[in-house]
Design a protein around this nucleic acid. Structure first.
Lengths: 209, 209
DNA sequence: ATCGCTATATTGCCAGTGTAAACATCGATC
DNA sequence: GATCGATGTTTACACTGGCAATATAGCGAT
């Protein structure tokens, strides 16, 4: 009956699956108390180990954050992909679905999103993070490149379409999370909220064409 | 009894204009060493005062950051306004000018921009900051509302136009500063850089109409 | 002039943080 | 069964922000 969970009694010297446990606790703290509260010592306390234990698995605070961000990007890419698959074939539908999924993820996991895009302590060279980011970007690009080119587009225009779509939804998500859109949302007709605003934004901003 | 050492000890007990000096040093540190290095003690050291001196003027680290962010937003709003004034009357021209100025500011003052939009320790209730943000938003909105409404627009559509324009340029700026657009920029035809990409993005994303 | 009064600046302290080194414990491998 | 590497703990150090107590200066009222 020796559960390595939170029993003050017979905690074995070695946790057994500390790395996983640390990541789980880290995400809990991140979403509950925010990025500022996500400290090595807090995570260690939550996992019931000494404050230097994470060093063995992540080497560094940057290491832990990068690893957690990689988890986030993986989930993120999966969510984007699923949303677009469910959206059917129409390019505009797919674009809209991607935008809704993008902002939806940010709202559902604000802490994780902040870590992924707003943290200064991520190591972009961290292999898992690098890979996860690449995957997510792939999903994103698929939303933009799905548009049927009515007229032949230059390479610059092609890239610009992807960049524009990404910038639009990313900017909306960031501003929304920072509360910078509060004023606009409050000025909307009653019954309209952030979701309706996003839908209207995606409708009014025609990327390409 | 007179000065044992003449030169380096000419610091009077009272600085005289410490608040201004602190803000100046803070910005220097911010742009030179990044947001992480912008600490109360570092600013105090740079200004040649004790580590608790800023308390009298800002009360708090949050106070100092908010004040500095307010300075940033003031400059930001001014830059946006000037760019749009210089752009003439055509709505699309004005929009493009605003976008270029927005991203241009972010690239010229990356530290300040990060503080303004990415910091977790700003006090949105801080009066100067609140006012400065409002001013900047005003300038921004002017860019979007300058578009002549060909057909009557609903309130939601009107707000959505402003939100879309803001999201687009803000997202581009954030992604650019985080280096997330590096891959796309490198994939551009030779001779094209971030500026051309931004121009193409603004051209391909037609906000409203 | 001088006596407070207030604003300004310093010193010293505390709790908290990340990181590194020395040490302890365990488990796998020979 | 001994050894060695992986995993945790302990201890220590240099930082940080914030607070309280103190020192200094400027300034108006008397």
């Amino acid at each position: 009956m020796n559960r390595p969970t939170a029993e003050p009694e017979k905690r074995p010297y070695h946790h057994g699956d500390l790395k996983t446990a640390l990541l789980r606790e880290a995400e809990l703290i991140l979403e509950r108390d925010g990025l500022q509260a996500l400290t090595l010592r807090a995570v260690s306390r939550a996992a019931g180990v000494s404050h230097a234990a994470p060093n063995n698995h992540f080497g560094d605070l940057t290491g832990l954050l990068s690893e957690l961000a990689a988890v986030g990007f993986n989930r993120f890419g999966t969510a984007l992909g699923k949303a677009m698959d469910a959206a059917g074939e129409d390019p505009r539908e797919r674009m809209t679905a991607m935008g809704l999924a993008y902002v939806g993820f940010a709202r559902k996991h604000p802490g994780l999103f902040a870590l992924m895009f707003r943290s200064e302590r991520l190591d972009d060279a961290h292999p898992p993070l690098r890979a996860a980011i690449n995957d997510a970007r792939q999903a994103l690009r698929a939303a933009a490149s799905a548009r049927a080119p009515a007229s032949p587009l230059s390479p610059l225009q092609l890239v610009a379409q992807a960049a524009a779509l990404w910038s639009l939804v990313h900017g909306f998500a960031m501003l929304l999370l920072e509360g910078r859109l509060e004023g606009m949302i409050k000025s909307l007709p009653s019954g309209e909220d952030a979701d309706s605003l996003l839908a209207a934004v995606l409708a009014t901003a025609r990327v390409g064409d």
